[in-house]
Simulated assay, not measured.
Amino acid sequence: MKNKKRMITLIIILAVAVLFGLRIGGNLQNKRSSKINPSQSFAEDSIKATPITIARVKKEKIDDTIFTIGEVSPTTKYNVNSKLNGEVDKIYFKVGDTVKKDDLLFTMKSDVYSSDKNSNLSKLKNQLDIAKTSLSQAKKSFDDTKKLFELGASSKDQLDRASLNYDNSNANYKNALSSYNSLKVSYSNQNDLYKVKSPVDGIITTKNIEEGMFASQSNGFTIITNKSLLIKSKISSKYINSIKVDQEVDIYINTIDRNYKGFVSSISYSAVKGSYPIEVTIIKPDEFIYSGMYGELKVKLTTKENVLTVPLNSIVKENNDSYVYKIINDTAIKTTIKTGIINNNFVEVSGNIKTNDKVALKGKEFLKDNSKVMIQ
C-alpha cells in the first residue's frame, strides 16, 4: 500500500515538473522572439525601399532644334515633248536611264515631210540653176555689146538693152537664190521637230510615248537633274516665326546612311492642316542621292550655354505640371520644375534644383513624395 502511494506521488511530481518546464521554455522562446534581429530588420527595411537608378543634374550647352522629315525632289523638271503631231518612229531611252545634253530621245516619222522637202527643194534648185544660166548669158551679152560699142560697131540703144537684160537676170538669180536658201533653212528647222533631244544632263523619270503611236505635243519624257535637289517638308505653327530663309539645315538620308548640308530656301505662310510647307535646298548633292528618297531634317534655332539639364526620362508629367523626384538622403522629394529646350534626350530645367542634384530615373513611376529609395 505504501509502495502504491509512493508511485502516485512520484507521478504527480513528474507531471508538475513537465508542466513547469514547458511554461519556462515558452517564456524563454517569447523573450527570444521579442528581441530585434539586425539582419532581419535590414531586410524588412530594404523591402520597403523602392529600387531606382539616378542621374545627376548638369550644366550644359543645349540647342533649340526642330526635327522634321521630307521628300527629296528636283529643283526643276524638264518636260521634253513632241514638237508636232505625228507617228512616233524610234525611241532611244527608257525610264531610269541617264541622258546627256543633246542625246537623241526619240524621232517622229518624216516620210511625207522628206518627200515634200526633196520635191520643193528640187524645184527651187532647178529655178536657181536656170536663173544662174540666164545671168551668165546676160553677162556675156552685155560684155560683148560693150566691146562692140567701144569699137563703134554697136549702138547706144543696143548697149542699154544688154545692160537692162543683165540687171534683170542678176535680180532674178538673187531672188531664186534667196528663195532656195530660205526654204533650206525652213526645212532644216522643221527637221529639228522630227528629232527630239535632251536639253540637259539628267535622269528620265517618266515616259508617255511609244514607238508607232500617234503622238501629240503632250507626249514625251520628263527629265530631272541631280545637280540641283531640294527637300519638301512641313513645320508646325509653333515654329513658323522662328525659322528663316537661308537658315542652315543638317540633313540625314537614312536609306543611304549619308549626311548633307542644306539651307531653308522657301517658307510658305499658307498653312495646310496646321502645318506650313518649307523647302530645303541641298548643298552639293552627289551621285548617291536621288529624287524620292526621304530625309531627316534638323534645323537649329538657338543655342543656350550653361543651362541646367536633366535626362528627358526623369521628367514626370501630372496635369499641366512637370516635376522630378530629387533624391536626398535615400528619400525621394517630389520637386516641381519648369522645362525649356529639349534636345538629344535632355531637357533644360529650372526651379528648386541645382547642379549635381540626384534625380530618379528607372523606378520613378513607383515613387511618391518622401518615398524611401534604394539606389542601384
Rank of each mutant, 00 (worst) to 15 (best):
G274T: 00
K184S: 03
L183P: 01
N165A: 14
S163L: 06
S275C: 00
Y173D: 00
T255A: 11
T255S: 15
A215L: 09
L229G: 01
A171E: 07
S228A: 13
Y269K: 12
S218H: 09
D246Q: 08
E211R: 00
S198N: 08
G262Y: 12
T225I: 07
T206C: 10
D192E: 12
Y194C: 02
N208G: 07
T205A: 05
N175G: 04
R258W: 03
G220W: 06
Q217A: 05
A171N: 08
N189T: 06
E287G: 02
V272H: 04
R161Q: 13
I256F: 02
K238N: 11
Q158D: 12
E211N: 05
T225L: 04
T222P: 09
Y194F: 15
I278P: 02
G262M: 11
N208K: 10
N170A: 08
E279Y: 04
Q247W: 07
D160I: 03
F263W: 03
V280R: 09
K238E: 09
I282F: 12
R258K: 14
N170K: 15
S236Q: 01
I240W: 07
D201C: 01
I243E: 05
P199H: 02
S265Y: 10
S275H: 01
E279Q: 10
S154I: 02
K234P: 04
S275I: 01
S155P: 09
N208R: 03
